[in-house]
Computed example of a mutant assay.
Amino acid sequence: MPKIVDHDQYRKELLIKCFDLFAQKGYASITMREIAKGLGVSTGTLYHYFPSKKELFWQLVEEQTRQDNQAIATALENAETLEERIKALFAFHAQHEDYIHKQILVGVDFYQQQDREEVINNETLKQMFEESRQLMTELLGIQDRALINFSLSVLMGLLLVRLFEGDVVPIEEQAELLRKMLTLYLKPQQKQEQT
């Protein structure tokens, strides 16, 4: 009896394993042949699932974003107040900081090899950013898109600073500052809504 293969699941497994290869060698330095070797599959098998290294990368971005968003949602599912949600969000990123730093570095390496307009206009990337914004809107309970963009910028900026400076800027401190800023900003709006 032939072995039954769940092709979508197998493709996802290959993608996740590819991330480690990109993180070790860099997007620019690794070839499809080296990726296939690192995964223990033939180049034919790799090309069957991913027609190019660029397509493999975009599928990786999509898969990681969806998995990361699900993990974040799970981490925040018991947080009830804005303070608890912000603390849980920042704690999640602190716990996975090395992984996120690798994502940043791989993303920058990929970006350097591409035309800026092509990256900015990539539909996969636009969709993943939108899904992440929507998740933050739901998890933080904030409908103001500018505040969501601000919160994501603070978090991503913090992770970038920590990539280059280590723990000079404490995550907990920044989470508390963001909470205070959002609370103060939202207070007048909440009063208006109540009246």
Rank of each mutant, 00 (worst) to 15 (best):
D20K: 10
K25C: 03
K25W: 07
K25Q: 14
G26L: 02
G26N: 05
Y27H: 08
A28V: 06
S29R: 13
I30H: 14
I30F: 14
M32V: 09
R33D: 08
R33H: 07
R33C: 00
I35A: 05
A36G: 04
A36V: 05
K37C: 01
K37W: 04
G38F: 01
L39Q: 06
G40W: 07
S42Q: 08
S42G: 15
S42M: 03
G44V: 01
G44R: 00
G44S: 09
T45E: 15
T45R: 02
L46F: 06
Y47M: 07
H48F: 15
Y49V: 02
F50H: 02
F50W: 05
P51N: 07
S52I: 01
K53D: 10
K53P: 02
K53Y: 08
K53Q: 06
K54H: 09
K54E: 15
E55H: 10
E55L: 06
E55D: 13
E55T: 04
L56D: 12
F57P: 09
F57D: 02
W58V: 03
Q59P: 04
L60V: 12
L60M: 02
V61H: 01
V61T: 12
V61N: 08
E62T: 01
E62P: 05
E62S: 14
E62K: 00
E63A: 09
E63P: 00
E63R: 00
T65M: 05
T65G: 13
T65C: 06
R66D: 14
R66A: 13
Q67H: 01
Q67P: 06
N69G: 12
N69C: 07
N69A: 02
Q70K: 05
Q70P: 10
A71Q: 14
A71F: 08
A71L: 08
I72K: 02
I72Q: 15
A73T: 10
A73H: 09
T74H: 07
T74L: 03
T74N: 05
A75N: 04
A75M: 00
L76C: 05
N78E: 14
A79R: 11
A79N: 11
A79I: 03
A79K: 07
A79V: 00
E80R: 13
E80F: 02
T81V: 06
T81H: 07
T81E: 00
L82V: 11
E84P: 11
R85F: 14
I86T: 11
I86P: 12
K87D: 15
